[in-house]
Amino acid sequence: MFPRLGFGLGLRPPHYQEVLDTAPRVDWWEVISENFLVAGGNPRRVLRGVRERWPVVLHGVSLSIGSVDPVDDDYLARLAALVDEVDPPIVSDHLCWSALGGHSGHDLWPLPYTEEALDLVVDKVRRVQDRLGRRILLENPSSYVTFVASQLSEADFLAEVARRADCGILLDVNNVYVSSTNHGWDAAAYLAAIPPERVGQIHLAGHSDHGTHLLDTHDHPVCDAVWRLFGEARARFGAVSSMIERDDDIPPLGDLIDELDRARGVAGEAERAPRGDGAAPGLAAQHDDRAAWRAPLGGAAGG
């Protein structure tokens, strides 16, 4: 259902020029959509240069799909124009809300997992997909509260949104770990509730431990517990496009590429291992879509 691109990184300003100059060993890049919804200048120059050589997927933070506010038409129009220009294999945002009454919180706020919220999110995802003319992926958020009103688990809610809205899931393994630790959820049960055919991308990232809770800060390397969970995810979901996000205390690019090699190693081990449910380790052998998406802008890439 979703292209399999290999192993990617989040493209961040401190690495822009080095990426263009050295063409590092990265299969694809993810960019934050909002950073490129600008008229011109260096961000757009970098995006054009990177897209000429790699697949670039768009990851948004402002869709606010769970807000009772309508989708921001101006934002959606600008995102649609960027999608047309970049021709990304994947477009994603978060299962969250971030604006109310026209005011933005610039955060990824959690939803109560209720039937009412489910209907709202499904309706809005359908509208967004109709406008963009393609499926989107929704990412499970890290969260620091749960609501009295919730009736469903987050994983069941996300799975149901994906089924009813016919969208994909961006499974952030670090977020599963952070939220599971913060709320006492069972991370393995969370993965088990996610329908494999809906998982179109996997995120890896680091977090910080604040004693009373974990915070999704993207300022550390991926921790061992999240690597283990990533292995479980790859065993269950197969060779899904996987990547590392780093947004603070950003290390040299070479360190992230080394970390990406670890992701390759963990994924390879997980996918070679016999599965606990007795099924053959076959998902990893599914086709590789990287070549199709390497076509330059305006080229043969599509779908």
């Binding site: 807000s67 009772v68 809300w97 109310l100 009454g101 005011h103 919180g105 955060d107 706020w109 109560p112 209720t114 009412e116 919220a117 709202l120 969260s143 620091y144 509260v145 749960t146 609501f147 009295v148 009103a149 919730s150 913060n182 709320h183 809770h213």
Partner: peptide, 25 residues
């Protein structure tokens, strides 16, 4: 849902107290 989001928003952006909103965290 609208009332819940209004409570959450007012608490987070303006420090207004909430009532019966949060189960944990």
């Amino acid at each position: 849902l609208a009332a819940l989001q209004r409570q959450f928003f007012d608490r987070v952006t303006a420090g207004v107290a909430t009532d019966g909103l949060i189960a944990s965290g």
